[in-house]
Design a protein around this nucleic acid. Structure first.
Lengths: 140, 140
DNA sequence: ACTTAACTGCAAATAACTTGCATTTAAATA
DNA sequence: TATTTAAATGCAAGTTATTTGCAGTTAAGT
């Protein structure tokens, strides 16, 4: 399943097909939410991948445009596979102020701004919605 | 000038008018850019304010809606006074990928998203533009 | 002047990430 | 298939922004 997919993505990006990276990428491909290194370490099954290697792999994935990185406000990076292949985010992200979970709003586009005047070069945009996720808002 | 203004803001927020907080708030009021704790420590003149106290004051300011906090991607908070008084950001922010400087795009509004369906409660939105600032883009 | 809750400083703790370096290994090449 | 090599890994240690605990100080209300 995602295994071949992951291997293929690695190949196309010119990366070595190691057990660790295949498992990591597979996990990200199957996750609907962006994951932190800790979450990844907890969820990785069948492979032991040192947390330093996880960071380095994620960095490589981001450099290759395979994933993007988001910041949820708790000073931890989270990572999600990225369909657009670009450097920035391809959609807005929702962050729950209560449980801290992050979510890709895949159906939506990041709205354009009415042109940043002057000599600024805009390379990427990020749009975060913060509030209560479905679960937390119903738990009140 | 900003001194009275700062004192007045503190009073309205029910905070004590200490030399440290007045100087801190004055500095933020006069800064056109969001500032990090380190930048603040470097820029504060005439007063010694321990960096822990700076953090605690900034936290209090944010709680009171006096300032907002932004994340530039380098894992450091930056703070700027906030005209809208709300909890979220009142405008988009620009972050330079080269020099790391942050900037409030005060003239602009954060665009609305076409309604986040389902039972999500959106409390705040944050919009970041990342790229090269005027100085860095001309330095190439 | 007195009282008190807010504010402050210092030292130490957290925690997420990064770096250096020696070892392993996938995959290109002979 | 054997050889080579650059990429990937693990471990230990380092970095650094931010937080926490606690004891001492002070603004401001009475």
């Amino acid at each position: 399943m995602g295994e071949n997919n992951a291997a293929e993505i690695l190949r196309k990006a010119g990366m070595k097909k190691t057990a660790g990276r295949v498992a990591l990428l597979k996990l990200l491909l199957e996750s609907e939410k962006p994951l932190s290194q800790q979450e990844i370490s907890r969820m990785l099954k069948g492979v032991e991948l040192n947390y330093v290697s996880i960071y380095r792999s994620l960095e490589a994935f981001c450099r290759a445009g395979i994933t993007h990185r988001i910041e949820t406000g708790d000073r931890t990076w989270r990572f999600a596979v990225c369909s657009c292949g670009g450097r920035g985010h391809c959609h807005p992200h929702f962050i729950c102020n209560s449980c801290g979970a992050a979510e890709c709003l895949r159906g939506m586009e990041i709205p354009e701004l009415p042109a940043v005047n002057r000599e600024y070069v805009v390379e990427a945009t990020e749009f975060y919605l913060k509030g209560l996720c479905a679960r937390c808002s119903s738990e009140v």
